[in-house]
């Protein structure tokens, strides 16, 4: 079992008199990549800055590798951070940017030269070592920023939406590279994003936050398939959110014959409906009202005869289903998942 490397306990943050984060707790395991996912304005940057020591009005505890660090200043924490704006130093060459932290540590020139060149090799930028930040593309700048942080071998590397300014193709390839560096160099990373796909793709663990609170923490699979509250059910994926009463109207039950609770919420993932019957499945009659092509999948809106709309996604492998024609969809009861703990807001 990996130990809890970073522990946030009862964190509270006040910014210009506003209490932005209240009593937040979560953990990051050693040598994992944990993403911090949440809608814009939910306080992700604020928490990251507090961990790095850039926010001063902080209450609660921050433990890194068993040590309390919340009262240390930013330059005493041995934490790396990559800013959303890259924050490269325009007056220094790429080499000097990457060497900055090593020079602060008064390493010898030989050591600096060796480590910086090795790091530039890792991020494939050796040929740009004498260039200046203004001469680099966005993706290259991003890699310099990551190299500059990683060369110090920080205990923890914080990345604040490091890919948000890049176009979709580069974003995918860079996120895979970041994941690769993380695994190769064995760095613990906390990665902020508001992109679920990004979070799902690269994380060991996802912490979802909203309005200054942790909503759920878990593996990508758990976050996707077992949302613990209504916010999670609405935020993640494209789930159908239905009450027990509505499920009864559709004639659905849950797996192993558990009885439905009338005012509890349940989620049904849109890709679990099927147009073909299976022995366990329940049949739902109705018709498709809209159809949109997503490439690999086709997204439908289905209106059941019980007058309940459902979101349905099917793999794009055959002729699309006809709109406005009566048809039957099938759903395995195992696909109905209660939105857990009942006390969720």
């Amino acid at each position: 079992m990996q130990s809890d490397f970073l522990q946030i306990q009862g964190l509270g943050i006040t910014l210009s008199g506003n209490n932005i984060i209240k009593d937040m707790s979560f953990k990051v395991r050693r040598n994992t990549l944990t993403t911090f996912l949440g809608p814009s304005g939910s306080g992700k940057t604020t928490v990251l800055r507090a961990i790095a020591g850039l926010n001063t009005e902080v209450s609660g505890k921050i433990l890194l590798d068993g040590e309390e660090i919340q009262s240390r200043s930013a330059n005493q924490r041995n934490i790396g951070m990559v800013f959303q704006s890259y924050a490269l130093f325009p007056n220094m060459s790429i080499f000097d940017n990457v060497a900055y932290g090593l020079r602060v540590q008064k390493k010898s020139n030989d050591v600096i030269n060796k480590e910086v060149m090795a790091m530039l090799q890792t991020v494939s930028l050796t040929n740009k070592k004498d260039a200046y930040p203004d001469q680099l593309s966005g993706g290259q700048k991003q890699r310099v920023a990551i190299a500059r942080a990683m060369v110090l071998k920080p205990k923890l590397l914080l990345l604040d939406e490091p890919l948000s300014a890049l176009d979709a193709k580069i974003r995918v390839s860079l996120r895979e590279q970041i994941r690769e560096y993380q695994q190769k160099l064995g760095i613990t990373m906390l990665f902020v994003t508001h992109d679920q796909g990004e979070a799902m793709a690269i994380s060991d663990d996802i912490v979802v936050m909203n309005e200054g609170k942790v909503q759920q923490q878990g593996s990508p699979m758990a976050i996707y398939a077992q949302p613990e509250n209504v916010f999670m059910a609405q935020f993640i994926g494209n789930h159908n959110l239905l009450t027990g009463t509505q499920l009864q109207q559709l004639g659905l039950t849950t797996a192993s014959g558990q009885s439905l609770v009338a005012d509890t919420h349940y989620v049904v993932r849109p890709e679990l409906f099927s147009p073909e019957a299976t022995p366990e499945a329940t049949a739902i009659a109705g018709q498709m009202t809209t159809c949109s092509m997503l490439g690999d999948r086709v997204q439908y809106h289905f209106m059941s005869d019980a007058k309940l709309p459902l979101k349905v996604e099917l793999l794009n492998h055959s002729e699309p289903l006809k709109i406005g024609v009566p048809l039957t969809l099938y759903l395995d009861p195992a696909a109905v998942h209660p939105v857990g703990p009942a006390n969720a807001e």
């Binding site: 930013a74 330059n75 934490i79 924050a87 932290g101 942080a149």
Partner: peptide, 16 residues
């Protein structure tokens, strides 16, 4: 330029 981020970045890299 984002001087705020540049300054904070230098602090995080260990500088005074």
């Amino acid at each position: 330029r984002d001087f705020r981020a540049m300054f904070e970045q230098a602090l995080v890299l260990g500088d005074s």
